[in-house]
């Protein structure tokens, strides 16, 4: 897989906990995506709607990984805002075939971007336009337009959108590569500006 090796090397000498928050509407494929990138996969995974949230912790490459899988059902979406603390990156999964709920996904993404911990903190946002294998799925560009990503300031919130198929892991790698590069350059920059910034963006 190599994802966590990459993130581990991206974090350089900083050892410890890596927290990634995975959010998105229900049924967008978050749990499937996480299951796919876990080091020791369950042989058979059956996706059932997540209730509340699920925390997956696993060690890989001398790093402890915490992946928080939030439920996307509307009654649980209020929980998201409580988990941005100490998170290093956010993965937003959107079902690219669910056109009718794109407006809701946009609204929820906006809410994420408005969050104190995310806004101006330079926390990278990786968007997966998931279910790209299904007919009628929207392209990367279409999703970005519908979600209003193009209007984002790349300096304040580094973002990237990747088309994916969480069932087989297609596209997941490309998105992760971007995340690794972004975290690397961010930590590089932070080392040079460490003296000036007393309270960092949460990278430890």
């Amino acid at each position: 897989m190599g994802l966590f090796k990459k993130i581990a090397s991206a974090m350089g000498r900083s050892r410890g906990n890596m927290r990634i928050l995975v959010v998105g509407l229900d049924n967008s494929g978050k749990s499937t995506l996480i299951e796919h990138i876990k080091p020791n996969k369950a042989s058979t995974f059956e996706a059932t709607p997540t209730v509340g949230f699920q925390v997956q912790e696993f060690a890989k490459n001398n790093l402890n990984f915490t992946v928080i899988d939030m439920s996307g059902q509307s009654r649980y979406r209020t929980l998201w805002e409580h988990y941005f603390c100490n998170v290093h990156a956010v993965i937003f999964v959107v079902d690219s075939t669910d056109r009718v709920r794109m407006c809701v996904a946009k609204e929820e993404l906006e809410e994420v971007l408005k969050h104190d911990e995310v806004q101006n903190s330079g926390m990278p946002i990786l968007v997966y336009a998931n279910k790209g294998d299904l007919p009628g799925s929207m392209s990367r560009q279409e999703c970005a337009d519908e979600l209003g990503l193009s209007g984002l300031n790349d300096e304040q919130t580094p973002w990237h959108i990747e088309k994916s198929n969480a069932l087989v892991g297609l596209g997941v790698e490309e998105g992760v590569n971007w995340l690794v590069q972004t975290l690397q350059s961010a930590s590089g920059r932070r080392e040079t500006t460490e003296g000036r910034r007393s309270s960092g963006s949460g990278h430890k």
Binding site: D26, N27, R75, R77, T78
Partner: peptide
């Protein structure tokens, strides 16, 4: 409820157009 969203409004106009609105969670 429509499409896994709890609150949706479906409006049909006299000329047969269908418009769907989602109730903002907030």
């Amino acid at each position: 409820p429509y499409a896994r969203e709890d609150g949706a409004l479906a409006v049909v106009s006299v000329t047969g157009k269908l418009t769907i609105f989602m109730l903002n969670r907030k």
